[in-house]
Structures are given as C-alpha cells and as structure tokens.
C-alpha cells in the first residue's frame, strides 16, 4: 500500500507515543526512535512498528517515533492510526476478524 501524505498520531503525554509517518519512495522502511526506554525496549518497539507496516503492506515509509513510555498496545494503535491517515483510508475493522 502506498502512503500519500505525511501523517501524525499520538501526543507527547506520559504513556503515549507520537508517531510521524512519511512516504519514502525508493527508500524502504526507515525508523527513527527517541525513547527513555530505548536501551531496554528499542528493538521491541521497532518490531511492533515493522509488524504494523507489514500488516498494511507498506514497504516504503520513514517513521519517526517520540516515545513517552507507551505500552505495546498504544504503539500499535498510534501506528495504525498514522498509517491510515497517511494513506487516506478508513480502517477496515473486519481485518480484526482474521486475527487469531
């Protein structure tokens, strides 16, 4: 799936994460992470971001993450929202029916 515009989701409040997703034609996936727990959870956060991008079939995106200690479920929610906004689509909730 192609991203059409830069988009943002989330805030800089505690327990949240601000995600910015930008189209990156020809550049693959590039992730920039700023987090107080980068040393412990940096790899896990990046894995979640890559997993969400893969679920949407996004192969070219630059993702900037300003983490304030968000849980995995919050990172996932913010990423889903940012990708939908960047792709200018409404989420198809029936996709959740196929999730184990």
């Amino acid at each position: 799936m192609d991203l059409k515009q830069p988009a943002m989701a989330g805030t800089l409040e505690s327990s949240d994460i601000q995600v910015t997703v930008v189209p990156n034609p020809g550049g693959g996936i590039a992730i920039e992470l700023d987090s107080p727990v980068k040393a412990q959870f940096g790899d896990a956060i990046r894995d979640t971001v890559r997993a969400v991008l893969a679920e949407f079939g996004v192969e070219e995106a630059r993702v900037q993450l300003l983490d304030q200690g968000a849980l995995d479920c919050v990172i996932r929610a913010r990423m889903q929202c940012a990708v939908c906004r960047a792709a200018q689509i409404s989420y198809d909730w029936s996709r959740e029916d196929r999730r184990p």
Binding site: A9, C73, R78
Partner: peptide, 15 residues
C-alpha cells in the same frame, strides 16, 4: 475520533 477508536479497541479487546 479515529485515533480514539484504535486505542479503545486495543484496550478493550486485548487488555
């Protein structure tokens, strides 16, 4: 509204 739906879904469905 869109962002809240994603958050609430995660909170209720999985946590």
């Amino acid at each position: 509204k869109d962002a809240a739906r994603f958050l609430v879904y995660q909170a209720v469905r999985w946590h």
